[in-house]
Amino acid sequence: MGLTFPNESAEYRAARERLLAREIELRRLIEAVARERRALPPGGVVPEDYVFEGVVDGAPAKVRLSELFLPGQDTLAVYSYMFGPERARPCSMCTPLLDGLDAAEPNIRQRLALVAVAESPLDKLRAFSEERGWRRLRLLSTAGNHYNRDYHGKGSDGGDTTMLNVFRREGATVRHFWGTEMAHSDGDPGQDHRGLDMLSPIFAMFDLTPAGRGDFYTRLSYP
């Protein structure tokens, strides 16, 4: 017999058991999709060793894509942050997501390197990072290179857009492994694309509640 809770009805328990079966089915589907993702054929070789502007030992410095991998590891995730020079403030959906990734970065780095890149100048990115209190997440400027254009951190209209790309290093060769292409597809009726929901503790938590996520959108700050 499974779990029960105080004063629940037989109707509730029967419905909950049916839902549990569906939740287990979903868990198995998520793992099956993850296995298919891991089994993808080799992706395209990165066309150039993109040069970003970052901070090394406390000072501004040029950093190549190949230098972003951590020692002894072969995986790099690059989040394209919607904070182009045309924006006075960054995207209010990207930013809370990066809040969580900043906190989780010490755990993430045990398996891969994670950086965020944006089109704005480095000084502007550093100022906002300090304002936000980010202490772990590495934020780099793509100003002057074509990374976002090539890897879909920019839309066809030239504006910035959300994208997470994963790269794999094979010896001296760096290949694209996977990108969150669902973020560039239409959502089902009544939904956004939900391309990065797998990374969001905010919306995952809301989905566990009676009201769900509703029409909620994150903000940079709240009253």
Rank of each mutant, 00 (worst) to 15 (best):
T180N: 08
R175F: 05
D49T: 06
Y151C: 13
R132F: 01
F128W: 14
L220K: 01
L112S: 14
G158M: 05
A61N: 11
L70M: 05
G58H: 03
R135H: 10
Y12A: 11
L139S: 02
P85R: 12
S66E: 02
T173Q: 13
Q191L: 12
L199G: 07
H146D: 09
L164N: 07
L112N: 03
E11H: 13
R219I: 13
L98E: 02
Q110M: 10
T95I: 09
A143L: 12
V117K: 02
E11S: 12
V46G: 03
Y12N: 04
D157Q: 10
L3T: 05
T142F: 08
L125A: 06
L20Y: 13
N107H: 13
P189S: 04
Q73S: 05
T209M: 05
R175E: 12
L220F: 10
F69Q: 01
S200I: 02
S120C: 06
R136P: 00
S185N: 03
P71C: 05
T75E: 09
F69H: 01
A127C: 05
T162R: 15
A143Y: 10
L68F: 03
D49P: 02
V55M: 11
G2C: 02
N165F: 02
A77G: 14
L114C: 00
F69M: 03
L164Q: 05
L125T: 04
E25V: 01
F5M: 09
A127L: 08
A21R: 15
A118I: 00
R22V: 12
D99T: 06
P96F: 08
G155P: 01
G159E: 00
G190K: 10
G212A: 06
M198F: 15
Y217A: 07
A34P: 00
Q110S: 15
I108H: 08
S156C: 05
R135N: 13
E181G: 04
R22G: 04
E105R: 13
R136L: 04
M1Q: 09
E36R: 06
G155H: 02
G179K: 09
L139K: 02
R138M: 10
G144A: 13
G158E: 07
A59Y: 02
G187C: 09
M163Q: 11
L65N: 04
L98W: 02
L137M: 03
E181V: 04
P106E: 07
Y222F: 13
T95F: 03
D157H: 09
L137E: 05
F69P: 04
A88D: 12
R109D: 11
R135G: 11
H193M: 10
P71Y: 01
R149I: 01
G155A: 05
D186T: 03
N7S: 09
R194C: 12
S129C: 11
G72E: 04
S9K: 07
S80W: 01
A21G: 10
